[in-house]
């Protein structure tokens, strides 16, 4: 198993336990904030898989978040799908999007890859905004839609503003994390790391580098789509701004602040920023300035991210990879 993947199981168990017990301690409002942190953390994790493990700096992740959100909304709105159907449609749509964009994008690397992913992002945003796709998107402001209930056998529980909805998000995100962890631990993680570390060498060893990059891009799109679907379903609304490339930058910020190549770091990053934003917006009228300042402080004084900082403070030697 990759050294980076060896994460303290104790921390994971403690986090899960805390998340399960949280509703007993905190006000219902903070339950919503926690769920939001988890959903955006999942979006960051999808980016970390791509950038932290495979070394592909993409600014196009918003496309797959948007595709997942609209896929879920469309399935509920037009196809009358239930929760599971909506999730399935969402991840299929997002993954198809990712395969299509990735097919072109993996042909270039480095700065070219970054610019190409931004270009695709802007093009698809403009195409959707131009109004030809109103029958899917419902125009710029998107459309509110009723969230389907959580159906588990004979059970049917409300998804929004409820304890069941919160536990559903916790379970979905924990499941996605476990799936991503297992995928990376399966040996695929090693191939991704080898591409990140030395692309020509991976190629010389006989790996189909473009193929593996496309795989990483598609898996990342799958998880980004899942986060988009969860966001749309729990907040019961979609907006074209989900597709905007500035959404992609959130994932970059949270991942680097939390710790790159750690899978858990992005959750820490999204937690810090969303909880911090939530706190600051009540105190300071222009709280995004504070976020900008916080970001600067971090990159100047703790560029290895929160997890790296914790490791350094704990004086534990860092993994070689």
């Amino acid at each position: 198993m990759s050294p980076r993947l060896r994460q303290a199981p104790l921390v994971l168990v403690a986090t899960l336990a805390a998340l399960f017990l949280a509703p007993a301690v905190v006000l219902p409002y903070y339950r919503i904030v926690l769920a939001e942190i988890l959903v955006w953390g999942l979006f960051g994790m999808a980016f970390d898989l791509l950038f932290g493990y495979t070394g592909m700096l993409s600014f196009g992740q918003a496309l797959f978040f948007g595709a997942g959100a609209y896929g879920a909304a469309y399935a509920v709105f037009k196809l009358g799908a239930g929760l599971w159907g909506a999730l399935a449609v969402a991840v299929v749509v997002a993954t198809v999007f990712a395969v299509a964009v990735g097919f072109f994008a993996v042909r270039v690397s480095g700065h070219y890859f970054l610019v190409l992913t931004i270009t695709f992002s802007v093009v698809i945003f403009l195409v959707l905004e131009s109004g030809h796709w109103r029958w899917i998107t419902g125009g710029y402001s998107g459309r509110p839609f009723p969230a389907p209930p959580i159906t588990l056998g004979p059970l049917s529980l409300p998804l929004t503003n409820s304890l069941a909805g919160y536990y559903f998000v916790v379970a979905a995100v924990a499941g996605a994390y476990a799936l991503c962890y297992l995928l990376l631990a399966s040996g695929l993680g090693w191939v991704f790391l080898s591409i990140r570390e030395n692309e020509p060498r991976a190629r010389l060893l006989g790996y189909n580098v473009e193929g593996y990059k496309l795989l990483a891009f598609s898996i990342s799109g799958f998880f980004a789509g899942l986060s988009g679907a969860l966001y749309a379903l729990t907040s019961q609304y979609t907006n074209l701004s989900f597709f905007h490339w500035t959404i992609s930058t959130n994932a970059v910020v949270w991942t680097v602040i939390g710790g790159t190549g750690t899978l858990l770091g992005p959750f820490l990053g999204s937690g810090l920023f969303i909880a911090g934003g939530d706190f600051l917006s009540a105190q300071v009228p222009n709280f995004p300035i504070a976020i900008g300042v916080l970001l600067l402080v971090f990159v100047l004084f703790a560029p290895e991210g929160l997890l790296g900082l914790l490791r350094r403070l704990a004086r534990r030697p860092t993994a070689p990879v």
């Binding site: 700096l57 930058t249 900008g292 300042v293 916080l294 970001l295 600067l296 990159v299």
Partner: peptide, 11 residues
């Protein structure tokens, strides 16, 4: 540096 400039952009 990309992140730092993103922070500046927000500010």
């Amino acid at each position: 540096t990309i992140l730092a400039t993103f922070g500046l952009s927000l500010i």
